[in-house]
Design a protein around this nucleic acid. Sequence first.
DNA 1: GTGCGCTTGTGAAAACGTTCACGAATTCCG
DNA 2: CGGAATTCGTGAACGTTTTCACAAGCGCAC
Lengths: 217, 217
Amino acid sequence: MATGHIPEATVARLPVYLRSLTELAAAGDATTSSDVLAERAGVNPAKVRKDLSYLGTHGTRGVGYDVRHLTFEVSRALGVANTWPVVVCGLGNLGRALAKHTGFTERGFPVVAAVDIDPAITGTTVDDVPVHSPDQIAELVAAHGVAIGVIATPGNAAQETADLLVAAGVRSILDFSSTVVTVPDHVEVRTVDLSTELQILGFHLHQDLPPEVGKTP
Amino acid sequence: MATGHIPEATVARLPVYLRSLTELAAAGDATTSSDVLAERAGVNPAKVRKDLSYLGTHGTRGVGYDVRHLTFEVSRALGVANTWPVVVCGLGNLGRALAKHTGFTERGFPVVAAVDIDPAITGTTVDDVPVHSPDQIAELVAAHGVAIGVIATPGNAAQETADLLVAAGVRSILDFSSTVVTVPDHVEVRTVDLSTELQILGFHLHQDLPPEVGKTP
DNA sequence: GTGCGCTTGTGAAAACGTTCACGAATTCCG
DNA sequence: CGGAATTCGTGAACGTTTTCACAAGCGCAC
Ligand SMILES: NC(=O)c1ccc[n+]([C@@H]2O[C@H](COP(=O)([O-])OP(=O)(O)OC[C@H]3O[C@@H](n4cnc5c(N)ncnc54)[C@H](O)[C@@H]3O)[C@@H](O)[C@H]2O)c1
Ligand SMILES: NC(=O)c1ccc[n+]([C@@H]2O[C@H](COP(=O)([O-])OP(=O)(O)OC[C@H]3O[C@@H](n4cnc5c(N)ncnc54)[C@H](O)[C@@H]3O)[C@@H](O)[C@H]2O)c1
């Protein structure tokens, strides 16, 4: 067993389990079960057990999981002991919200700097986050050891921003810009597209109910 | 064939294709191919063809796809002709960014109202979006025909907000609160958890490189 | 110590999603 | 007109993810 390869789908759920474990610990529970974790995470209990089994054998049959120990193991698998500094690119409505959010720092992702093309805001700070101009990305990344870049610029500036981040040595990008950015293989991009999320909800609303009059019956 | 059941994974990609098609049309292209669409969407060409085949047979062998016609078909499948009014709950950093975002309205998801518990901002407007108190959710939903609720409150208010939305008749929820909310079967919830996204990126950073010597250096 | 009830860990099956590979339809050109 | 070049549509192979189902291990009662 040991900690071999962990499936992507499992990795995406580990943070949810970790949050549940933290809550359970705060509530004073010393042990828990796959049923309880499943309930809190909104998934199937068998899935919880299989997911956790990829981290090794950390439960006790007939008893369940020790909350403290499992918290430690999930944390280790996720590597939450590390701190990964983040730079936010594009300080508009969304970038500002991200820069002000305190939850990221708590989880090991401090926003150490922001970048914007607007000369009216470069040189200022937003909640202690200094705002620089895009041509300083390389320096910022080097100075703070930034590994993750967040793109919150308009879509038409997304690719060039990604290029700057990649050239500066960033290895992970979180892209909010509703565009598909192209990067070298060694860089991972995750896209969060809020319009698409709404469109998916819209699709199901549209499907569920209306017989859609006027088409061919 | 016809428009039977469309797989979830395909539905999630249709908005991306639609965006590409819009850009191609704007660039003056009358026809396109699965290769071009795949390139723009960042996926495999075979996947594009399979996805589109769920909507019916709309391409021409040896030629490709007519941009206008395909745009129409994808739009129809997604139901983008519909307008689904949205109410944003919790007008903090994130809620404010969402309320101010103009892109949602353009795609058929106008933010018609916001809701916040803070009496200092209820009664005001944010970019023409009126801010009400949570006990008015039911009226707002009824008055505007709201089908989608966005939860941007702190985590500890998420479940009660979801309950209010559900009671008011909302059928879809987009939840940013990093909590798992429980709703009846007929309500769909999509969760967007930005911390989790960062943690997934962090996991891969952590995995890729470090042999993780001992413990603390 | 034996039995009973509980909960994990995990093979195996089922469901789902992706990719391949190729036949079919179309255009173009000589 | 015949053949080469395209490009779609799709069955089948492949890979991943979810779910099932049950043996194995543990604690407790007696
Ligand atoms: N605000 C939202 O709720 C929301 C929702 C969905 C998607 N988005 C997407 O997120 C992105 C940002 O949205 P927003 O509402 O914050 O937009 P915005 O227009 O408010 O802000 C964009 C910011 O990026 C800066 N910028 C422009 N070009 C730049 C460059 N080359 N380098 C660095 N900075 C640059 C601008 O000066 C501006 O401050 C957009 O792509 C938008 O489509 C936003
Ligand atoms: N800001 C971000 O970039 C960001 C990033 C990741 C996650 N989130 C999550 O999104 C949510 C909102 O984040 P934020 O930064 O906007 O927080 P915030 O504290 O700035 O805003 C929260 C708002 O919700 C309001 N509120 C509280 N209880 C309410 C209730 N019962 N009904 C209606 N409104 C209520 C508050 O008055 C406040 O205006 C949080 O759950 C946060 O964890 C935010």
